[in-house]
């Protein structure tokens, strides 16, 4: 479903150019649960942003469901991003002052979906927050806030959920609960999840492990296609 070929991302910072990604090729199929690990600065977040259409590769090819998305217009990328991807960040990234329900409704507003309230409430039920619907971020625990973020990314029925260190700010027990939730979504509802983490224990929930170093994929536990073309 996701097909990346020789993706590079170069940041021009002053005199020197930073090669955040220097030729990543990766295929991710529907229903996969992938964990990406690697040292700090190895390009994990950069890769996630490119997959999620928040960022554009400097070169390389990106096909999503057979469609070339590397050269889409800014607006088309925004619409596709909102409908095909759900982001979960380490720092939750909820809007202050909004209730959980309003947070989850947000992507639907931009997609122009009808019946928003009901769908948002359903998504909150799916992450086990049916009794926190009217709570604002300051009235929720870290784990609960992260569940709201997951509900927000689930509400549009995304192709892929992209989670960049989702347990990074949570204690071990809460992190486990969250991983159990994600695993359940993959196994019972066929969700595709790409997860970035530093923790081996968290990565162990995934069925496939990708390791990155210096902007390259250096190890892929299950790469029938990527194995051939990867350097």
């Amino acid at each position: 479903m996701i097909r990346l070929r020789d993706i590079t991302r170069v940041y021009a910072t002053g005199e020197t150019a930073v090669h955040a990604l220097s030729g990543v090729s990766l295929d991710i199929g529907r229903g996969e649960f992938v964990a990406i690990r690697g040292q700090s600065g190895s390009g994990k977040s950069t890769l996630m942003n490119i997959i999620g259409l928040l960022d554009r590769p400097s070169s390389g090819e990106y096909a999503l469901g057979g469609r070339d998305v590397a050269r889409l217009s800014e607006d088309a990328r925004a619409r596709l991003r909102g409908g095909a991807f759900g982001f979960v960040f380490q720092s939750y990234n909820l809007l202050p002052r909004m209730t959980a329900l309003e947070q989850v409704e947000l992507p639907l507003i931009y997609q122009g979906t009808p019946d928003r309230r009901r769908r948002a409430a359903e998504a909150l039920v799916r992450v086990g927050l049916h009794d926190r619907i009217a709570h604002r971020p300051t009235e929720l625990s870290g784990g609960e806030q992260q569940r709201v973020a997951i509900a927000r990314s689930l509400v549009v029925d995304p192709l892929v959920l992209l989670a960049d260190e989702p347990t990074g700010a949570l204690d071990t027990a809460t992190g486990r609960d969250l991983m159990t939730l994600l695993t359940g979504l993959v196994e019972q509802q066929g969700l595709t999840v790409v997860l970035v983490t530093h923790e081996a224990e968290v990565a162990a929930y995934a069925r496939r492990a990708v390791r990155m170093r210096d902007g390259r994929v250096v190890k892929d536990s299950d790469a029938p296609v990527a194995a051939g073309s990867a350097r």
Binding site: G52, D75, A78, N93, P107, Y110, R152
Partner: peptide, 16 residues
């Protein structure tokens, strides 16, 4: 700024 980033991430276009 952060709110704008979040809105962009969940699908807001520049026009939105």
């Amino acid at each position: 700024t952060r709110e704008i980033g979040i809105r962009r991430a969940v699908g807001a276009t520049a026009g939105d």
